[in-house]
Design a protein around this nucleic acid. Sequence first.
DNA 1: CGTGGTTTTGATCATAATCAACGTCTGTGG
DNA 2: CCACAGACGTTGATTATGATCAAAACCACG
Lengths: 206, 206
Amino acid sequence: MDELIVCNLRIGRGAALYHAGTASRHLYFIRLGSFKTLYCCEQGHQLVTGFAMSNQALGLEAITGECHACSALALEDSEVMSISYSGLERLAQDMPALQANLNRLLSREIRRSQHMLITWGHYSAQERLAIFVLGLSRRFAARGYSAHHFVLRMSREDIASFIGVRSETICRSITQLRELQLVNIEGRNVEIIHLAQLEAFCQRGY
Amino acid sequence: MDELIVCNLRIGRGAALYHAGTASRHLYFIRLGSFKTLYCCEQGHQLVTGFAMSNQALGLEAITGECHACSALALEDSEVMSISYSGLERLAQDMPALQANLNRLLSREIRRSQHMLITWGHYSAQERLAIFVLGLSRRFAARGYSAHHFVLRMSREDIASFIGVRSETICRSITQLRELQLVNIEGRNVEIIHLAQLEAFCQRGY
DNA sequence: CGTGGTTTTGATCATAATCAACGTCTGTGG
DNA sequence: CCACAGACGTTGATTATGATCAAAACCACG
């Protein structure tokens, strides 16, 4: 197993784990910290496609040896494990379980993207923000942190880009969610006032 | 290779290749015809997530043995090849190339979903329709058919759901694209008036 | 033919984008 | 430690886009 791990990398806040367009033969697993993945358009405009935190894989879209479709930037000082894909491929031949696991990761990523498509297409800005916050809450909870209090690692601009609205709209939605007594967001501190109510709010059939 | 192919299936127009929630151990390849994939919400509302035509794979999201996340319905009388995933897994162990190919399919599907996310998040209804039509044109062209004249297999409602707007908006966008002298859509017949102009129209940096 | 489902068009309304101004936070150098 | 610059965040006023509601026109098919 050890032969796979090319190295453990430290990535400073704001630095890139990889850039779009770079050919890559590696998968990455986040040990510590968090990242945003983004596409860059010609105009220098950036489009955030996701946020990843510890125990998540990065670089799955590039697994074929084709180049990375997006860049990954560290939102805070982070540590990642780099795994050579060719090594993984070789090892997986002798370990079907490993291969199946890899397939599962890929398959899950497809479902995640498609679920986002559905979500963003059919909810209002307010609801999308609520869903986004709830998603973060669940991810923190899954890692043993509080589901009710946590700190955002990303800017309003990043959230806006990810959710598909403007940052002004994020601000207004924050205000609205506060008025609804669902979530209190002050600066980057998030307090979920009533988790069950927030979940109910997000539930509107897909 | 033959042992993998469980059977060649014929699916009549409107019939399902598989349903969401069904556990499945098969991948499908479309030999002939076309399908739409859709999620169903509680309210009986359907959300179209994609259209697939000949030579495309279906069921990739369910590759892990978990159940299908969406349903696949035939838009016309179709033929598909059904492939047992466990058989594929076994065979792939001895044929690394096959495994790599499978990974490539999965990886591509991730990129496709993410690209759609970007597109839908950052273009107007009119532009999205143009992009949709252009995509169809390219897919027909890749299969040896005319890139300028083709027939839609799906309803306005399906396109609307896929694109993330209402069907009325699709109608208005069709009118607008006709007025712009880009595409002429009458009923289900599509005529691309000026392909290069349409491509330019769709190009606005992601 | 009619009947039910699509498609189209029109009028009005709601949501989020845009433009603009102002407040707040952060890190840097004096 | 403070002052400052620049980025980030918030709020307001106005506009544009697409949703919604409603009514025709069109079509496919028994």
